[in-house]
């Protein structure tokens, strides 16, 4: 199911939580929602799930507005802070959610078994939710969101509180699900969006500041290419001076004298020219690494100003 967000706006008192944002998500796409705290991620998600009402604009699923059409059965939602009934055992809770979502009686048991397997809850399934560790609570939250096999998954910070192994597992899980469904997830863990999402949406102060894949964002953010080299065969200073003369090179700096490392910043990719120059001069090249602009830097660039 496709989601279309059009000119969405929401104001809390004097503060514009969401300010005229538009984007769309297609089936089979995982959209990562990035932004500093208070940027409007959660508000947007709450409006998409129709938990709160918008002020302006519209959210449409398959062309129908979420505030008039009933899409609750098509949406699986993991709210921020993952609220759960502490005194309910995991199995009972999942059954409760399945029944509320209208899963057919004959299928409830099967769905619960599937979710417990999928989310790795088998060892904890008879415990009360209040007794679970944060990571397991998060899994229960994911399980309840997916229990009715929804077409759309809205996950507000799905991996908070998980240990690194669990994070990898949950990411894999989301990726697998994302192939056939529409997924929107929010996070402020940057490597996470890169690892899981097909597309990244960065919002800041209620406005969209970037929209695209990690690669397109990188290209947009900086046109400079940084290349790291490890070269021997001549004095490092001479090498640097010579490389600095190549057309297109903006700067060439010695990073580390002991290991003969040089960093070259150029306005386009000149790896080939660099390589030829080195070969012609009879130097030995042992390392040549293109340095990618970090998503962190892009994020800081976009959200600090």
């Amino acid at each position: 199911m496709n989601i279309e967000v059009k000119n969405l706006a929401k104001t809390y008192g004097p503060q514009k939580a969401v300010d005229d944002i538009s984007f769309s998500v297609k089936t089979g796409e995982i959209l990562g929602f990035l932004g500093p705290n208070g940027a409007g991620k959660t508000t947007t998600m709450k409006i998409i799930t129709n938990f709160i009402d918008k002020d302006n604009g519209d959210v449409q699923i398959q062309g129908d507005s979420v505030s008039t059409g009933n899409f609750k059965k098509n949406i699986g939602y993991l709210p921020e802070h993952n609220p759960l009934y502490e005194d309910m055992p995991v199995m009972d809770y999942l059954q409760y959610c399945a029944e509320l979502q209208g899963v057919a009686k004959s299928k409830v048991d099967q769905r619960i078994r599937e979710m417990i397997k999928l989310c790795g809850l088998n060892a904890e399934k008879h415990k009360k939710i209040g007794e679970l560790s944060k990571g397991y609570r998060q899994r229960v939250g994911l399980a309840q969101a997916m229990i009715h096999d929804p077409e759309i998954l809205i996950l507000d910070e799905p991996t908070t509180g998980l240990d690194p192994n669990q994070i990898v597992e949950i990411r894999e899980l989301i990726k697998r699900i994302g192939r056939s469904k529409t997924v929107i997830l929010s996070t402020h863990i940057l490597p996470e969006v890169e690892a899981t999402c097909d597309r990244i949406l960065i919002i800041n102060k209620g406005k969209i500041v970037a929209d695209g894949t990690a690669d397109t964002l990188r290209k947009q953010a900086s046109s400079n290419v940084i290349t790291r080299l490890q070269i021997s065969g001549a004095a490092l200073n001479d090498i640097r001076n010579k490389l600095g003369l190549i057309p297109g090179v903006k700067s060439a700096q010695i990073m580390d004298l002991d290991s003969n490392r040089i960093e070259i910043e150029s306005d386009h990719n000149i790896a080939e020219v660099i390589f030829r120059t080195i070969v012609k001069s009879n130097w030995v090249i042992t390392e040549m690494i293109p340095v990618e602009t970090k998503l962190e830097d892009i994020f800081r660039d976009l959200t600090l100003n």
């Binding site: 709450k46 799930t49 129709n50 938990f51 009933n70 609750k72 059965k73 949406i75 939602y77 709210p79 802070h81 609220p83 759960l84 009934y85 502490e86 959610c97 509320l100 979502q101 209208g102 309840q144 009715h148």
Partner: peptide
């Protein structure tokens, strides 16, 4: 208080 109202109201009920 616990926020579970958000879960309930976004369920199909």
């Amino acid at each position: 208080k616990s926020g579970t109202i958000e879960l309930l109201l976004t369920k199909n009920i």
